[in-house]
Design a protein around this nucleic acid. Structure first.
Lengths: 212, 212
DNA sequence: GTTTGTGAAATAGTTCACAGCA
DNA sequence: TGCTGTGAACTATTTCACAAAC
C-alpha cells in the first residue's frame, strides 16, 4: 500500500469491477486471483499486485470475498455515489448517447444537455430538456455536474472543451475525433471507434499480405 | 527499422494520422516532430522513435513532408484500401452505429447487418438490409467482410463473438460491456464508455475529498 | 542553424517466486 | 495444503543526447 498509483493500475480496476459483478450476479461468493484473471485475460500476479496498491483484501489460502472486494473497489473508484453528467451536442450521436441505457444502472446520470441549434433547444430527449449553450456554465454549476460528454462536430469540439473547463468541469469524455487540449488538473478521454479500427487493420493487413 | 513492432507503437499510428490529416487539411506541407507532438500531446522523441520502427520518413533539418508521411502511415496501417464491416445486433445501439457518419469517410464501410429479432429482419438501416443471424456465416464469406461490430446485449455477446470467429472474422469491435474471449490470431477490442468514466471518477473523487 | 534517427540510459510496468498465513 | 501479498528480477517503454544530414 502506497501513494501515487500508476494510471494503468487505475484503468484496470473497472475491469475487475466488471468481472466481480458477473461473479456476484452468478451467485459466486469467493474467487481467487487465478480464476478472476482467467475470466478477464489478466495475469493473476497482476491482479494481486494491483490490489496491493490499495490494501489487503484477500484471505491467504481462500481468495477474495466477491461482494467485499466489489464494495472496496467501488469505494476506491468513487462509484459508491451517483455522478451527474451533461451532454454537449445533441445531433445524431448526442441523441444516441442520451438514449443509451448503459449509464444509469452503473451510476452515471445525464441531467443536462446543450446544443447551439435553435431547432432542438427546448425539446426533450430521454427526459432531459435541451438548453442553449449560453446556459451551460450556470446550469453546470447549479446542477453540480462534474462530468461532460462532448458530441459536437470536430470543428467545434475544442471550443466546447474550453467552455466546459471554464465552467468548472474536471472530467470530459470526448466523442469527437480530435485530440483536444485541457489544462493540468482536467481529465480528457477520447472515445473513437475509428482509432481502434485503424490499429486492427494493421494486423489484418499483415495476415492477408504475408503468407509467410 | 526492424521486426515485431510493439502494440503501443501501432496504437499511436492512428493518432499521427489524425494529427497529420488536420495539418494536411490546413494546407501545411511540412511538420517537425516537435510541432506534431505538441498538437497530439506526445513527446517529439516518441514520435521519431515510433516512426523509426518502419523506416526513415523525414529530412534532417527540415522535418516531415505531411502528405508523404500521411501516405506512408496509411499504407503501413492498411488504410489504403476499403474495409468492409458487418454489424451484429440492430437495437438502439446497433442502429446508432449504422447511422454514424464517421466510418465511411475514413475507409470503413458497413455492408451487412444481422439480428435475431424477426421484427427487424428485412428492414433497411442506412441502406443495409438486416438479415437473420443464420445467414451470418455465408454472407460474411460472400461479401468478404473482415471486421465485425458487436452491438448485442451482454448476455448474447460471447455467443455472437464465437459465431463470428467461426465464420472467419479476424477483427471484432465489441460494444457490449463484457470481456470476451477469442482464440489466438483474432483481435477483439472493446468500446465501453462506462469503463472510461469509471477510471475518471477515481481522480474526481480524490480532488473532491482531499483538500490536502 | 535545424531537426532527424538512434543507441544508450532511465523509467515504468509486469512477472516471478516464495515467505507467511489461514 | 492453497492462495495472498510483495520484494526482487525481469521486460517493456520512454526519454535522453548527440552524431549525421541537410
Amino acid at each position: 500500500m502506497q501513494r501515487q498509483i500508476p494510471e494503468v493500475v487505475v484503468s484496470r480496476l473497472p475491469m475487475y469491477i466488471r468481472g466481480l459483478t458477473e461473479l456476484y450476479q452468478g451467485g459466486i461468493a469467493l474467487v481467487n486471483s487465478g480464476d478472476l484473471g482467467a475470466r478477464l485475460g489478466i495475469a493473476p500476479a497482476q491482479i494481486r499486485k494491483d490490489l496491493s496498491y490499495f490494501g489487503k483484501f484477500g484471505r491467504r489460502g481462500r481468495g477474495y470475498n466477491v461482494a467485499l472486494l466489489l464494495g472496496e473497489l467501488s469505494q476506491i473508484l468513487g462509484l459508491d455515489r451517483q455522478w451527474l453528467m451533461a451532454v454537449v451536442g445533441v445531433g445524431r450521436l448526442g441523441r444516441a448517447i442520451m438514449d443509451y441505457k448503459g449509464f444509469a444502472p452503473r451510476g452515471f446520470k445525464i441531467v443536462a444537455a446543450f446544443d447551439r441549434d435553435r431547432k432542438v433547444i427546448g425539446r426533450k430527449v430521454s427526459d432531459v430538456e435541451i438548453q442553449d449553450m449560453s446556459e451551460l456554465e450556470a446550469t453546470v454549476k447549479e446542477k453540480n455536474v462534474n462530468i461532460a460528454i462532448v458530441a459536437v462536430p470536430s470543428s467545434e469540439a475544442q471550443e466546447v472543451i474550453d467552455l466546459l473547463v471554464q465552467s468548472g468541469v474536471r472530467s470530459i469524455l470526448n466523442y469527437a475525433p480530435i485530440c483536444g487540449k485541457v489544462p493540468p488538473g482536467v481529465r480528457l478521454e477520447g472515445i473513437d471507434p475509428v482509432l481502434a479500427l485503424q490499429s486492427m487493420t494493421y494486423y489484418l493487413a499483415r495476415s492477408c499480405d504475408d503468407l509467410s
